[in-house]
Structure formats: C-alpha cells, structure tokens
Design a protein around this nucleic acid. Sequence first.
DNA 1: GAAGTGGATATACC
DNA 2: ACTGGTATATCCACTTC
Length: 821
Amino acid sequence: MKIDFIPIDYDYFDFEDRNYIRIIGRDKRGRRVCVIDSCPVYLWAVLIDGLKESKIKGLVENIENIRLNIKGRHTKVEKVELREKNFLSKRVKALKIFATNYKDLHDIADKLDFPEIQNRRGYDLGFITHYIIEKKFSPLQWHEIEGNVLDGSGEFGGIDKGLQVDICIKLQSHKKLEASVFTPKVLAYDIEVDELKIGEGEILMVSLVSENFKKVITWKKPNKKLDFVEIVKDEAELLKKFVHHVREISPDFLVGYFSDGFDLPYLKTRATKLEIPLALGLDDSQPRFFRAGAGRSLGTGKISGIVHVDLMRFIQTAYSQYMQSETLSLNEVSKEFLGDTKKDFKFKHSSKIKKEEWDSYFEYNLHDSVLAYGLFQKFWSDMLEFTRVMQEPVFSVTRNGMGSNVEDYIIHNLSKFNEIPEKRPTYDEISERRRKEKYEGAFVFEPIPGLYEDVAIFDFTSNYGTTIVTYNLSKSTLLKEKAKDAHHIEIEGKDVYFSKEPGFFPEMLREIIEKRKKYKQELKEKPDVIKQARSNAFKLLANAAYGYQGFFGARYYCREAAAATAAFAKKMIKEVIEKINLQGFKVIYSDTDSIAFLIKDKSEKETLKFLEQLNKELPGIMELELEGFFTRGLWVTRRTGTIGAKKKYALVDKAGRLKIRGFETVRRDWCHLARELQNKIIRLVLEDGNEIRALQYLKGVVKKVKKREISKEEIMIRTMLQKPIEEYKAISPHVIAAKKMRELNIPVSGANMIEYFIAETREKKSLVREKVKLPEEKGEYNIEYYLSRQILPAVENIFQVFNINVTEITEGKRQTKLGDF
DNA sequence: GAAGTGGATATACC
DNA sequence: ACTGGTATATCCACTTC
C-alpha cells in the first residue's frame, strides 16, 4: 500500500526484545494512520589515536561477544563496524556498535571499558530521537510511504488491535514530499472546580471546543435552556462523557491552557478517585505524567496517539520576550493575540453560587476553551515550524525551553558534519559547572543625563551569534594551548585561543543566521504566516545559541566560548563607539549590541552612508543596522547620586511614537497611578522639549491624590510571588499580602500575582508592610506613601534634567525655584 | 532610635 | 534546572553610634 502520510506523534514499544516505533499521523484524505517501523540500534566507541589494525581487530572481536540479560531481555552486540568519523570536529576512528535493544545501550557502554576506547557516545539520545535521525522520518512533514497493512494480523503481538486508527501500516519505505498544507483536528478543553489544589475538589464542568463543536458537560443545572450545556448525573458521569466526546472527535491535538499543571492532572486524579478509566489514548490508555525534574518544575501529561498541548508553555518560550502582556494569564494573552478576553465571572465556591449565576459560569467555562482554541490557531504555524526546524515531535517542541530547542537542532544536524554526538553532562558535571563563577558579560555605556535632540541608533544584527561565527567560538574549536594562527582574546587575565579551522557548532550557527536572513527577506517580499514563523524560529535559535554554550545543562557547554563571545563583542562595540565619535558624532549611550548617538550637524543620509562604511570594516559576518532616527531622547540620573542611569531611557520618533525602556512606566510592580503619570510626563517632555506642560500635569495629579480622588484600581501594586511563602527570608509587603490572602482563603492566581495597596493606619507605623491591605479590605490609601514612594520616585529624575527639584511639589511645600504656574 | 549599609527580592534590558 | 550577564530600585534586616 502506498499513501501520503504526515507523522504527528511518536511512541515506541518492545517486541521480542527489539524496539519498534509507532507513529500516529494522517493521510491526505484525513484518515488516521498508524505506522510501525524499526531501525538499527547502535552506539559509538571513539578509539584512541594511532591504533594498529590488529589491535582494532582484537578489540572488535571482544566487543562482538558482549551479551546482556537485563530484566529478562536478551541483548547482544550484533555487529561492529569501523568508521571514519568526527568527534568534536576532530577526525577519529570509531566503532559503530550495533545492539538489540536501545534501552540496553547504556549497559553495553558500561562494558566497553577498554584502554583502546577513549569515549563512548550516542546512547543517550532517546529512541525516538535516534529513530528520527536514523530514518530521516521527521515530524509534520509530508511523506510518501509504502508498506503492508496490518489487518488485525496479530503481528507484533496484535499491537494494531484495539487501536483507534483507520489504517495500520508496517513501513517499508518512505520519501519526503514537497511541503503542503496540513490542517490538524483540534479540540480545546477547560475545567472548572471548587478547590484549586489538584484533585481536592469536585470537577463541576468541562468545556470542549472544536470546529463546529461547542459543549459544556456539567452535573449542575442551568437556569435557562442553553444549547451547549449537556447535563449529566454526577462527576463520574461527567468524566465518562468527557472521555466519550474526546474519543468521538478523535483530535490530533488536545489543547489546554496551563493544562499540564492543572486540567489534565486534575482530571486524572479525580478519575482515579472515582475509579473511572480516563481512556483518552488511541490504545485506550490513560494519560501518563512525567516529572520534568526535581523541585517545583511542571510535569507533563502525555496521551498516547493524541498530542496534548499546553499552550502556555509554548507561548512562554517562543513568544513571552516579545509580548506586551505583563503576565501569561489566558486573559491577557488572549487580549493581545485574539483581541478577546475571558468572560466575567467572579470565582466562588459552588455552594455560594446562586441559581441564576450558573448560566454565566457555563458561558465563562465555554469561552475559556474558545480562547484556547483561538490561540492554538494563532500559534499553529509557529508550532509547526518549530517542529520542522528542531525535528523533534510537537509534544516535546511545545514544552521545551530554548536551551533544549538549540540542542535538538544540533543533534538533528550533526550528520551533515559526520559528527558523533556529545553526551549529556552527568549530575556531578552539572554541579561543577554551576559552581563556576559568572564570567564578564556585556558593556553598558554610562549616559550623561539630559534631553537630547536628533538621536540615531545602530545595532548589531544577531550580535552574539555573528560573533560566534566570525571568531569560530565553540567547545570543539577551543585550543588547549597558545597557537599562532588562531583567534585569541583575554578572559579573566588569561588569553584563550580558538582554531580557525571551522567547527561544526559555529558552522551550524552560520547556516541558522543565513536562513534567518533569507526567510526574513522572503517574508518582506511576500508575507505569509509560515515564513513569519520560520523566520522567527531561526531568529530565536540564533539568539539562544550564545546562552546555550554557557548553559550548565548543555551537551556542548563551553564556558570559555561563552565568555569569549561576550569579550569579542565587547571589544567590537567599543571600537565602533570610538569610530562613531571620531567621525564627528557623539555617542551618548550603548548597551550590549546597540549604540545611540547624536547626529549633530550631519544629515540622515550622511549617517546612513557612514553606516555602510562601518559595515565594510567589520570582520566576518558581523553587521550593523539602523535601528532608527529619533527626534528626541531622554536619559536620567539614577535615583541616588548624579550619575546617569543605565537601561533606562525614552525616545520619540518623527511619527510621535514613543520607545520607553526601563522606566517605571514599563515595570509591572509599580501602581498604575505612578506608571501612567510617568508615561504622560515622558510624552510631554519629549514632545515639547521642555518641562512646562509636564510640571502642570504633575501638579494636577498631586492635587487629586491629596484630595483622595484616585480610584482604587489606580493604586494597586502587583508583585509576583516567586516561591512558597515559607521560603522567604525577608518579609516584604507582597509576602504579607500573600499571607493575608491565605488567611482569608482568597485563591492566589495561577500566575501567582499578588495585589495590594498601602493604607493609612491609626497608629504611626514605620514599616511599609505594616500598612499593606488587600483590594477587598476596607481602608483609605496612604497619601504620604503614594506621593513620596510612588509618584515622586517616578518623576523626580525626569525633572532633575531641567534642574527642577520636584520634592517640594509632591510634599506640598511652597515652591521657591520656579515662580508660579 | 536614627542613620547607614548590605542582602533579599522583583523586574527590566539586551 | 531547562539559554547568558548587567542593571535599577525597594524594602527589610542588621549594625553602629
């Protein structure tokens, strides 16, 4: 049989001691297809230099005799081949040692304790990864496949029996096809409960949303007749009904928001308690949960044959750095990406919900799934492209951090370089790496505070990435000793050297950067979501590659390479700053990869011409580009002292667009009153070029504060609880607020955002935390606190630029310096 | 008990 | 634990006089 097939989910099983992969996907007609296949299993033994042929022959014979019996599984070395390979960019002779079962490779590696072998590698990739590499059968790519249909034949112990698929094929051959559209079947879900602690309360309702399908299953009664509500007898029936609908719709993706951490484990726990099998898997299996590691890190919920996607996790790694949203809450994220919000419903215990309120609860529940469904559609092209680029199953790609994504990309591209994969660091190695001191990072220019006119900004495109490529910085190119024709730079008082012989890591990164450039260009010419997603994936990869080499968990960890990257980049930007000044401009600020300078008497055209000239002088693939021209820019002092504050500035361009960095305006842990006031002041100062209107505005706000005319919403301070309350050594205001919430049984949001305000107190209290009140508590805001600790700090150093001491205004004293406005 | 300082904590920039 | 370092600012905790 021959069909077109797209692999979606990968799984594996053992049969007669051997490993088989089971891939679930679709064909062009939308039929669900299961593909079963196997591949050779092997690991690598890297031999020491200069071994004689006879020695190798003897060694091979020894290895071929290895036999193991682990947990009743018979594994043996099946054959051994001698190969010319590269290991860490060095040419080596290596033995490719084939064995029966992938799970036993580690034990075989332990048996390879021969003096002729210097490294044992390639046994820690995981069978799915190993299979994808070996057979080049990559996820979410269309393939033409050929094979035999297993028609309940009983082959592989009848693995196809009872599997909810249309066809099950034993693979014979496959080839990749041209990219074409794939529209997956998606089902979004969301639950509502009384107790937020997993499994502690009853599940009141579940909503399900798919194409032309909207449903809320509940055992509570609606007030009016709502056509999307399906009423069942009790919680047990609800769970059964949920399973029934999921199986009937049989989606490729079951999608939730924070569902790894909440919905799926909750369903599983309740199902176990009520002894209802949560048979969601295509093979009737229940979701399995994997702990990602120790501590508080999230587990993952895996359903056999259906890809469970927790959108929050993907959005966090792929998008959060570019988002406007201040939290990853479903509400904010939906507002930003869908222009839609959650429905209004104030959480309360079901015993306190009035009869007529249930309908809006059902609508609320349904709408959460509508949002999750919408977000999936919005981010689908990104998930698709990430999966294709990293070549790992969607399940992992949507959960991985950027560190793992970089590593996946490397692992799946090693064969182009004939490279044997490096191993994962051991626990001890990780501990050792983590104990190492921080190395010196980026350069930040100390600005002279002031309001400037006509500012231009240049920045390096993929700065650290292009630095790594230009100077060939990586684990495999680091030289042990001083060398003549090598890149070298001083780190911590010592010179380090990197070979000029291209290493696979920098070369891979070169390709990533080139692809990013290419797709960005194509996107510009003819935009579409796929190109956008692809361009974005390569951009993120390029940016994360530097951090990866300095990351203690990386296979290709190299502190020297990371430190050298920062050092080369620092040297480079300082040289460029010098050149810009020498040309007659004046640099006023710089941070890591960007330089802001006054163009003075020069024109924009001349500035751009100079940029071209600079680019010609840059080494390797390093490149400067214009970030923009700005009509005015504002830099202020630090709060204490007179020196210029770094990472804090505001710009306005010709179109009146503001670009504000670091100021309280952009910090979510300041109250809206202070943030909006500061934003307004910055705008007025940048638009007018003086402080007159800004000062007037400030006075108005101060007056309002004093007259208690500020709304409660405006004075709320929001801070995130970063760890369990007990672990705090310092009891700061937000910890007090969190404690109060616990006492009053107010649930802490999923994002752990704590909200409070500072109130007037009867007695005189000196500590801020003694004045903390929750939004629901009665009390008036503390005028003194909001004036001196919120408003004043937010505007003080802006007016300082104009030599105006604003303390007098906020404290209500008579102005001496300025006369009257 | 005020004043000064360092540590803990949160958040932002690139 | 799940990319890196640099920086600001607040408030508490502690020391000193």
